[in-house]
């Protein structure tokens, strides 16, 4: 399905994400990596010290869409696949891979790239490459 190229909205939204990542470090001293924050809340061995701020961050993330709808009336478009088995597989791969690889698009792609971390640059190039490969297979081969 086609989506329109939105350079301005994406740049502005990206700047807000960057500001959030900066605020996270400035206020509580932590990297704003969503996979890290959420996985540390879960068993086995949930991390107790970061739990209150982790829960507060996730709560804010969950409230963003309902508050946006309430404040502006704009309902974000979410064109998600209707194939639930594909979504289950995709979700497990995203969860497993991001914990194994110590980060996702936010932790490596935004925070790590901003620290010019070699690990994060390598991880970002790797997940971009396999993402491109899987979408190519899905849309142009299978």
């Amino acid at each position: 399905m086609e989506t329109s190229f939105t350079p301005i909205a994406s740049l502005v939204g990206g700047a807000l994400i960057g500001l959030a990542a900066l605020l996270m470090m400035a206020s509580v001293g932590r990297i704003a990596g969503v996979s890290g924050i959420v996985s540390r809340l879960l068993p086995p061995r949930p991390e107790m010290s970061g739990m209150p701020t982790g829960i507060a961050f996730v709560l804010g993330l969950l409230l963003a869409a309902p508050l946006t709808v309430l404040a502006t009336g704009y309902v974000p478009e979410v064109n998600v696949s209707s194939n639930l088995s594909v979504l289950v597989l995709a979700g497990v791969l995203v969860g497993f891979g991001s914990v194994l690889g110590s980060g996702c698009t936010s932790g490596h792609g935004v925070c790590g790239m901003s620290r010019l971390s070699v690990r994060s640059i390598a991880a970002t190039l790797t997940f971009m490459a396999t993402g491109v490969g899987v979408v190519y297979l899905m849309r142009h081969v299978l």
Binding site: L89, A90, G91, V92, L93, V94, G95, F96, G97, S98, V99, L100, G101, S102, G103, C104, H108, A122, A123, T124, T126, F127, M128, A129, T130, G131, G133, V134
Partner: peptide, 8 residues
């Protein structure tokens, strides 16, 4: 891990 994450 990054490769698996990217595939998902």
């Amino acid at each position: 891990g990054a490769a698996v994450f990217g595939a998902g």
